[in-house]
């Protein structure tokens, strides 16, 4: 019986959805399976034109979106060191090499300064493609750098999180980046320089439990997974099904952990408003 059912389902799949699209030309939405051209997707700020699914994008796309492609990158050549000579099934060195080759990036975060609607802004944007956007020493050091730069020049800071959490291959060093980024943010706050945290899909683990949650303003893209413990771990722990919509941006907004959710098409405008409102920010006496 089951066989026939399955066969029928297969036939019912729309042909255009089933066709293998050559990489780089077509984009198939992982949620609604609508197929559009890459160009259409880009013009719609990497959201599915059909269901508004926010495709995961990287630092370059965010810099282009926010700075109109006009920005200065800092510490672009900073790279990770395999202090622990960590080896599981693969060595960390090989993982780093493979990640660099695959992404063309030096690690899971990039820092840049530019202008958003004529107002200066420093942005640290994470790249999920680089070992799951995991936080190791480079991520911590670049965020510390961005914070010092923001303090020196009294420029607002935006951190865009997209990460699975701490980088296991740097063990205690990665754990300590939670402390490092948080102590640096406490200095930024003391100086009265605003920090906006934008959480995107996914933001989990040690990053959520440090800088992502510490924004003066906490923002998120719609329907992003935002969590301390990921849904799989929670499910294994409580051995129950998780409620619908658990750990999404909307869930966090409802529980009081976000200031608002921002559609990617409105990101520039909303940030521009914030930058305007915070322009008179200064160090309190």
């Amino acid at each position: 019986m089951g066989w026939f059912k399955r066969l029928k389902d297969g036939i019912q799949t729309a042909t255009r959805n089933k066709k293998e699209a050559p990489e780089g030309l077509w984009y198939k939405c992982p949620r609604c399976s609508e197929t559009v051209t890459r160009k259409e997707l880009r013009e719609n700020v990497y959201k599915c034109p059909n269901c508004n699914y926010h495709e995961r994008i990287g630092s370059q796309e965010y810099f282009d979106l926010l700075f109109d492609g006009n920005f200065e990158e800092y510490e672009a050549d900073m790279e990770a060191v395999d202090v622990l000579q960590f080896k599981d099934l693969k060595s960390y060195k090989d993982r780093l090499k493979a990640a660099k080759k695959k992404t063309g990036l030096s690690d899971a975060i990039r820092v840049a300064r530019g202008k958003l609607n004529r107002r200066p802004l420093i942005v640290a944007a994470m790249d999920f493609g680089f070992i799951g956007g995991s936080m190791g020493s480079v991520v911590g050091e670049k965020i510390a750098f961005a914070i010092d730069e923001a303090r020196k020049t009294r420029t607002p800071l935006l951190i865009i999180s997209k990460t699975g959490g701490a980088r296991m291959m740097e063990a205690a060093f990665s754990l300590m980046q939670m402390a490092k980024t948080s102590v640096k943010l406490s200095q930024l706050a003391k100086d009265g320089v605003p920090y906006f945290s934008l959480m995107t899909d996914p933001t989990t683990g040690g990053v959520t439990a440090s800088y992502a949650m510490l924004g003066d303003i906490n923002l998120a893209e719609p329907e992003a997974l935002i969590a301390f413990a990921g849904p799989r771990v929670v499910k294994e722990t409580i051995k129950k099904e998780l409620p619908e919509g658990f750990q999404t941006s909307e869930f966090l907004l409802e529980h009081g952990f976000l200031d608002f959710i921002v559609d990617r098409a409105e990101l520039t405008e909303r940030l521009s408003d914030l930058l305007h409102l915070f322009e008179s920010a200064h160090r309190p006496n």
Binding site: V81, E141, A179
Partner: peptide, 12 residues
């Protein structure tokens, strides 16, 4: 603060 800010090793 300086103690935690110094934790981590990177290269260029």
């Amino acid at each position: 603060i300086n103690k935690y800010a110094a934790i981590g090793q990177v290269t260029h």
